[in-house]
């Protein structure tokens, strides 16, 4: 199998990789937006509860979390496909990091913005949606790009659940052909092709706008 064939075979797994990413974002984005805002706005025991929930998803090693849900859910009669479990775990994990970015964005926002909105007669919810969020989110774009990169890299784990993503394919090829070098080189190259442009983009945007928080990613 020559290198080009190997690449082609690996990329047949791209659909799965992309699918996991898309599905994960469906979990992660709402999680980040809602809980990030809640963590910013709430106080007292409610805030503690929100923080605990976020920390659970954020502080766990993803690979362990994946196995936990993969093996435990069937025990409580929830039968989910590997794709569903993988996406959910990855999504919630990234969402956990996302909450911190959303919160930082809201915190960094000039207080005057909130006050201006209220003075105009906006309801708190309208104020949040129309005035604060757009600005907080725009400021955090470099961070979100980094989280996206993190997510894409994280999809590798679903190969451990035998999902036929790019990594799974590469492993197959490596095992079948007994030549790991081309297979894994091709795999590295494949992820590089996807993530490197994003890395450059993230850095470019960060230089242009400055980041509101120190980047803390995996």
């Amino acid at each position: 199998m020559d290198f080009v064939d190997i690449l082609g075979n690996i990329w047949s797994g791209f659909g799965t990789t992309a699918g996991v990413v898309a599905l994960a974002l469906l979990y992660g984005i709402p999680f980040a937006l809602v809980f990030g805002t809640l963590q910013h706005e709430l106080t007292g025991w409610r805030r503690f509860a929100v923080t605990s929930f976020i920390e659970f998803w954020r502080s766990s090693p993803i690979i362990v979390l994946l196995f936990v849900f993969y093996y435990s859910l069937p025990m409580i009669r929830i039968e989910l496909s590997a794709l569903a479990v993988g996406s959910m775990v990855l999504g919630m994990n990234i969402g956990g990091y996302g909450t911190q970015a959303v919160r930082a964005g809201l915190q960094a926002l000039d207080r005057g913005q909130k006050e201006a909105g209220i003075s105009l007669g906006l309801s708190p919810l309208q104020n949040l949606l129309l005035v604060q969020m757009p600005q907080a989110l725009r400021a955090g774009i470099p961070t979100y790009i980094n989280l996206l990169i993190q997510l894409i890299k994280g999809t590798v784990l679903v190969s451990l659940l035998s999902l036929a993503d790019m990594t799974f394919r590469a492993k197959e090829i490596a095992q079948i052909t007994f030549t790991p070098a081309p297979a894994y080189s091709a795999l590295l190259l494949s992820y590089l092709i996807i993530c490197y442009p994003l890395t450059i983009l993230g850095r470019y945007l960060e230089q242009r706008h400055g980041s509101t928080e120190r980047r803390q990613d995996v």
């Binding site: 784990l157 990594t167 590469a170 030549t179 790991p180 894994y184 590089l192 490197y196």
Partner: peptide
């Protein structure tokens, strides 16, 4: 540094583990 950060760590582990012996 960009290369290392743009590729998953698991893949790097596989690469080093399986390819170096070659």
């Amino acid at each position: 540094t960009d290369f290392i950060r743009s590729t998953p760590i698991l893949v790097q582990i596989y690469f080093l583990y399986f390819v170096l012996p070659q």
